[in-house]
Simulated assay, not measured.
Amino acid sequence: MAREHTKNILESYDDMLSKERDASKYRNKGKRNTSVKTVYGEVEYERRVYQTRLADGTKAHVYLLDRYMGVEKIGLISTNLAEKIANSVAELPYRASAEILSSSTGQVISAGGVWNVTQELGVRISSEEELDVKKMKAFTMYEGWDAEKEKEGRSTLVEKVVFAGMDGSRGFPKRGKL
């Protein structure tokens, strides 16, 4: 019943998007069958594919339903099921995870499928971390100089403090006062 309800909701949203789309920008190329494995079983539904032109003028095919819903699925696996897979493999081997997930969801999930989902999640996490690292800024400050080493003719800084974060440069002095 939950699968049928989910199918109806998805197809209703697809109908709504078809009516509201900019027809000059998105040309309806018909419906395509698809499915997604969820924690309550596999949901089969139809969604429309649209042809559009990218900024460089090339043709592209898009599913407005996926864009609208922010659907993030890995292959035919829902985000919720992918999360359950990730939690399971943190504690168990792939084969044991596959057996437990198959019995609890009523669908066949192989050890290889569990491995594939885990690899895809790893790739996504790595790319998100790379973006965060690009945003990160570092700030180093020192209290002063070592007076004894200064007498020896060597300049050495003391009381080094390093801050790292996502703040702009104006936010760092405030953190230094914590």
Rank of each mutant, 00 (worst) to 15 (best):
S104A: 11
P93Y: 00
E46A: 12
D132Y: 10
Y45H: 05
D22H: 04
L178T: 12
E128K: 14
K25G: 00
G112D: 12
Y50M: 04
E128M: 10
R21C: 07
L131E: 15
E148L: 05
Y40T: 06
K84N: 07
L81P: 08
M1L: 06
D66F: 14
A90K: 14
Q107T: 14
A111N: 02
M16Y: 07
S104N: 07
Y94K: 02
G30V: 09
I109R: 00
G165Y: 14
R67A: 12
R3L: 09
S127K: 12
V108A: 09
K59T: 05
R154E: 06
I125C: 09
A98E: 03
K137E: 13
A96V: 05
E148F: 01
T118K: 10
W115Q: 10
L65F: 03
E11K: 00
D14I: 03
Y68F: 15
A23S: 12
S78N: 05
P93V: 05
T6Q: 07
L92S: 12
D167N: 04
S12I: 00
T38F: 07
E128Y: 10
D132T: 11
D146Q: 04
E11I: 02
L101K: 03
R67Y: 14
E83G: 15
R95T: 09
L121F: 08
L81C: 14
K135H: 11
I9S: 02
N8V: 04
L17C: 08
D56N: 15
S78T: 04
E46Q: 14
K31G: 11
R47V: 03
L17M: 08
K135S: 14
A147W: 07
T156E: 10
V108W: 06
R48Q: 03
V39S: 07
V43S: 00
E20Q: 00
G168I: 01
D66W: 09
M166H: 09
E130A: 08
E91F: 12
A2G: 09
M1R: 09
E72V: 07
R124F: 02
M1D: 13
E4Q: 10
A147V: 13
Y63L: 04
V114M: 02
S126N: 09
M1W: 10
G75N: 11
S97T: 06
I9L: 12
E143I: 14
L17V: 04
A98P: 01
E143L: 14
A90W: 08
N80H: 15
T58P: 02
K7C: 09
E83P: 02
T156K: 15
Y26M: 01
E152A: 13
G106K: 09
E152M: 12
T52N: 04
